[in-house]
C-alpha cells in the first residue's frame, strides 16, 4: 500500500472541474502549469478525462444546475482520488451563498480532502495546499 500512495503523491494527475466559478481560480490553475510555477516538476499534470484523475480540483460555488453534474463527475473518478475545494466559493460559497440558485456547499455533497482558500488563491497557496495534502497522506501512512 505504501508504495502505491508514494507513487501517487509523486504523480498527481489533476482534473479540473468548474462548478459555476467566476473563472479566476480556473485561470490560476492553468497558471500553475506555465513557466513561472511549472508544477510538472512535482509530477502534477492536467488531464482531460476524469477517468485519469487522481485529484479533482473543484472551483466555484456549484449552482443548482451544476450540482447534479458535479456529483456525477466525482462518482466517475477511479479510487483513490482526492477532492480539493479551490477558492472561497468552493470552500464556503462565499458571497453567493444567499442566492436563489445555490443549494449545497461542496462538502455537503462529497468528502473534501483539502480546502484552499482565497479569491482567487495565489498559485503559491495552491502549491502549498497540495503539498499539505500530500504530507497528510504520508503521515496517515506512517500511523
Amino acid at each position: 500500500m505504501s508504495l502505491k500512495i508514494k507513487a501517487l503523491t509523486k504523480s498527481i494527475w489533476v482534473f479540473h472541474l468548474a462548478a459555476s466559478p467566476c473563472n479566476n481560480c480556473d485561470i490560476e490553475i492553468l497558471d500553475l502549469l506555465t513557466p513561472r510555477w511549472d508544477i510538472e516538476r512535482f509530477g502534477i499534470q492536467l488531464v482531460g478525462s476524469v477517468r485519469h484523475a487522481d485529484a479533482i480540483l473543484v472551483t466555484g460555488s456549484m449552482n443548482r444546475k451544476a450540482h447534479e453534474r458535479v456529483k456525477r463527475v466525482i462518482s466517475q473518478a477511479p479510487q483513490p482520488c482526492f477532492v480539493i475545494a479551490l477558492g472561497n466559493c468552493a470552500c464556503s460559497m462565499e458571497m453567493f451563498g444567499a442566492s436563489y440558485n445555490q443549494m449545497h456547499c461542496l462538502d455537503e455533497v462529497t468528502k473534501v480532502h483539502a480546502y484552499i482558500a482565497g479569491c482567487p488563491p495565489k498559485p503559491e497557496a495552491m502549491i502549498q495546499g497540495i503539498i499539505a495534502l500530500i504530507e497528510a497522506q504520508l503521515a496517515a501512512l506512517k500511523k
Binding site: 444546475k65 444567499a98 436563489y100 440558485n101
Partner: peptide, 30 residues
C-alpha cells in the same frame, strides 16, 4: 439559465419574491 425542473410561477427577480430564508418557496429541498 435555471434548471428545467424549476417550479412554475416562481420568478426570483420579482420584488415580491421571497427566498427560503424568509419562508418563501425556493424550489429546493432545503
Amino acid at each position: 439559465l435555471l434548471t428545467d425542473d424549476w417550479p412554475e410561477g416562481n420568478y426570483p427577480l420579482r420584488q415580491d419574491w421571497k427566498d427560503w430564508r424568509e419562508g418563501g418557496e425556493n424550489g429546493s429541498e432545503k
